[in-house]
Design a protein around this nucleic acid. Structure first.
Lengths: 155, 155
DNA sequence: GACCCTAAACCGTCCGGTTGGTACAGTAAA
DNA sequence: TTTACTGTACCAACCGGACGGTTTAGGGTC
């Protein structure tokens, strides 16, 4: 992930890239924040109504298809950030917020809420790094299983 | 993660390090494989008996405490490997094997088996990157919840 | 003229990898 | 039991290329 490669990928000159982002760190931070915001907005769209578990359902829905990441791009951003000390903190903040919303403000039993979160994050990270992603069928079945638990809980 | 830093960490000179590992790639590969093997052996230890779900239980037990990684070390290895194209393949292979064992050879309903896997991996990866790890209490409750589902299934 | 770039040369540093050498342990003929 | 040689384990110093970042000179558009 060099500046030149990013510039070419973005159809911009290296100078133009550095016109917008003063340093590679700044670029990386912006990329990461942008990715996280995109996910957050998508989650908001998927959150239907305000009955208990609405956000948890969105969280699972988000990872139902494996398309939630332009493989390689998000992976690179995430891995690069993980190597630069402290560079991952926007991600930490975002996940903390999601976790708080799921566990404390979604009207679910905390353990079930955490289950939804960990399954969602688990699938997301497994896909992100390509660590033996389950098939579409398996994934669907798993999500249905967890959704079922949310329903039981919501009653 | 530079060769020099690794060398210092290991109490060796850079030259000495490269005597054992001909290139950085080779070093990284060995580090990754070693980490994975360590986890695999630990899982084997934790697998008690051979009733249905024995391996799934071990998988969850493994991530019960957050101590399963020398934070920073495993993170660096994993993130570095993720950036080098193809360098993550030993990890993919290992996860594929675990997934196969869980889903096809542990005597559980496939969805429940996958649930155990995704919860295990989810917690592991969340810890690895420090993405808002749940508290010990929350983690324990979650694991108990999933273990309970394995028991229901096993009957 | 302010803004948003392109293009290209350039610099300094960092880092992977190479090289030549040292220390030492074994071993085996003289 | 000295001598000579071999292999293993290491180190310090160096080299060269890649890459982050700067600078300069300019061009198009509102």
């Amino acid at each position: 992930m060099t500046l030149e490669r990013v510039a070419i990928e973005a159809g911009v000159s290296k100078g133009g890239l550095l016109y917008h982002f003063a340093s590679k760190q700044e670029l990386l931070g912006a990329l990461l924040i942008d990715t996280l915001q995109g996910a957050d907005e998508r989650l908001e769209e998927l959150t239907l109504g305000d009955e208990p578990g609405a956000f948890a359902r969105a969280y699972l829905e988000y990872v139902r298809t494996g398309e939630h990441n332009d493989r390689g791009v998000a992976t690179g951003i995430f891995a690069s950030a993980a190597l630069d000390e402290g560079e991952l903190s926007p991600a930490r903040a975002q996940f903390t917020q999601w976790q708080d919303r799921l566990v404390n403000h979604d009207g679910l039993d905390p353990s079930v809420a955490l289950l939804a979160r960990v399954v969602g994050d688990g699938l997301w990270l497994i896909d992100l790094f390509g660590l033996a992603s389950p098939s579409d069928q398996q994934r669907d079945d798993l999500i249905e299983l967890v959704l079922g638990m949310l329903d039981q809980e919501g009653v």
